[in-house]
Design a protein around this nucleic acid. Structure first.
Lengths: 350, 350
DNA sequence: CTGAAAGCGCTAACAT
DNA sequence: ATGTTAGCGCTTTCAG
């Protein structure tokens, strides 16, 4: 591997000048810079990360902390982060939090403390007090996606508003018996998002003078299969059958649609379904959904981190909390409820 | 941040001894090691990555190179890698290859050459000659998942055998008109896997004295929606309608099942479908599939890298190429074809 | 604008 | 088994 001194010799300057020319820090004449760059290119010189980091204290790497990898939301956010950081020459160090307590402790107690990253992006993780303290103690900027937090810059959609929007879309269509597929408790501890969406759902119902009923809530796991199972429970339950389902994720919403088909219910004529995320599958299933632009969330988190790291007088300082946009995308899975049954029989409209 | 000298002072030894005690390299008496470990714990000392790397030449980080993030296969493999590496104290530096040529060049020409990683795991990437050379020129072990390659240790299933197995499963059930959903050319350049699966499909047909027909092949993009669209084309095509579809991924297979339902075809009575991957969705759709244990592939790649990095006399040296297992999981989406039509009309069995 | 030189925090010979 | 010490390759004062 060719080192900085070879480049210096080739360009006829000192190593200090090479460092300045290549890093863009400190003044170098245009002519010198050009010579240095050419020499570096010709020799195939790339600065060695560890030496540069040790001397400068900067690593050019961002730690990304994720609770999971396979849900579409997480991998999509990560893709956005990866893309944006790569454009700025930053590497990603990936920390996937396992549910094993020992491994989790090692992440916060050891891995993250190696000073391998200049900043951390934590995606949708509900941190314990100790973990928050550990992150804050790192002495590097931390940007969170999902959920505000003191001591950390955060970007998040207003999940309660999402719940309200989805539910009032259904209310406006005339639905009165609206079910909700939310999260199992263990998912809520990973990312507290679900309980806020549920609160929005209940608030919208209450505003419409409808009492939220426990039987109309089913907890699930954010997968298609889980959503399908939850929908089955909802449809089987005694009492008035829902005419609409608001699922806390598009994947679960797709599951609900599949269940409806199995039951011989037409979507949206017999059952309306609305999801959240903006999943690519939505178009295929003609799913009405609240798009939260996950990839864009990743990009913005990356850009926020970079602004924090390389303050630029021309751009504003990132505010401690940014509210991200979301948008109701009405496709074909929601419509007015079927006409009221002639008798008392809630199944009569079938 | 507390440094090694503070620990040395606290433990009453030299920094060299601290280094040896904590890294496990070189001899240290049990008593000293204990004292050092306690001092380090008490002070919350964690070795600084850049200083350690610069001095030792080891980074304790593995580069993982992926073409994409959201297909279930990739995020699942990555999860396996992350888990296995974390258990051994290694970090992951993530390199997501974009399809932008400039960005791709930067990955190979700059990012990977910063000497930030001790080894590289390249997942299902079809590298150009130049890219292979760049990887080899890194001077670190490279382990590939998917596709053998000279100069690189590789782990892969035999994708042609997968194609043969899937197809002969259908042949054995009595199918004669078997369609295949494969990859669009641009996907094959990312990971050459698809064309091998197709070759296996054709070989199995040929062995059964059936001529592979171009009209029975549809190229797609590995998504559910893409698989559904491909299946639609297959069913619409003139000529004899297939009684079975072999899709090169489970996600496309699920798409095919959904299309069949739309067409009013029962699976498996009217149409059999088989996929590849072992996707968690498979159980839900009762999909017959060839499981290739993606998470396990990630784990094994990680372990192979570690064996290469820390040769252990008790374990064998990793062979240059390891053939990974796969397994036909028969669920409910495959069955014998419908009885032959009474007349010439290929649609009569509907 | 450029060069000389002192580290950055740790590891690995080399001694003892 | 442990200490001493010379770097690892780069960045950054500090001079000029």
């Amino acid at each position: 591997m060719v080192g900085i001194d070879e480049v210096a010799r080739a360009a006829g300057v000192s190593t200090a000048t090479v460092s300045r020319a290549l890093s863009g820090r400190g003044r170098v004449s245009a002519a010198t810079r050009m010579r240095v760059e050419q020499a570096a290119d010709r020799l195939g010189y790339v600065v060695q990360a560890s030496a540069s980091s040790l001397a400068s204290g900067r690593t050019r790497s961002i730690g990304v902390l994720l609770p999971l990898l396979d849900p579409w939301f997480f991998s999509t956010v990560l893709g956005g982060i990866a893309d944006a950081l790569a454009r700025h020459g930053y590497d990603i160090t990936l920390y996937v939090l396992s549910n094993d307590a020992g491994a989790r402790n090692a992440m916060f107690g050891t891995f993250l403390r190696r000073q391998r990253v200049d900043a951390v992006i934590a995606v949708s993780i509900d941190l314990t007090e100790a973990e928050s303290a550990a992150l804050a103690g790192l002495g590097v900027p931390v940007v969170r996606i999902g959920g505000a937090h003191r001591h950390m810059t955060s970007l998040a959609i207003d999940d309660e508003a999402v719940g309200v929007l989805a539910t009032s879309h259904l209310l406006r269509l005339g639905h009165r018996v609206i079910a909700h597929i939310g999260a199992l408790p263990e998912f809520d501890s990973d990312f507290r998002v679900p309980s806020q969406r549920r609160r929005g759902y209940e608030r919208a119902l209450t505003s419409a003078a409808i009492l939220p009923q426990a039987e109309l809530h089913a907890a699930s796991d954010f997968t298609i299969a889980g959503g399908a199972a939850a929908a089955t429970r909802l449809l089987e339950a005694p009492g008035e059958r829902p005419t609409a389902i608001f699922a806390a994720s598009d994947e679960m919403a797709v599951g609900a649609i599949l269940t409806a088909r199995e039951w011989g219910l037409r979507v949206p004529e017999d059952l309306s379904v609305v999801g959240v995320d903006g999943h690519e599958l939505g178009a295929f299933f003609r799913l009405t959904s609240i798009d939260q632009f996950p990839r864009e969330q990743g990009v913005r988190a990356a850009e926020t981190v970079l602004e924090l790291l390389e303050p630029d007088p021309t751009t504003h300082v990132p505010p401690p909390h940014t509210v991200l946009p979301f948008e109701l995308v009405v496709r074909g899975s929601t419509a007015p409820p079927p006409p009221a049954p002639p008798g008392q029989d809630p199944l009569a409209w079938q």
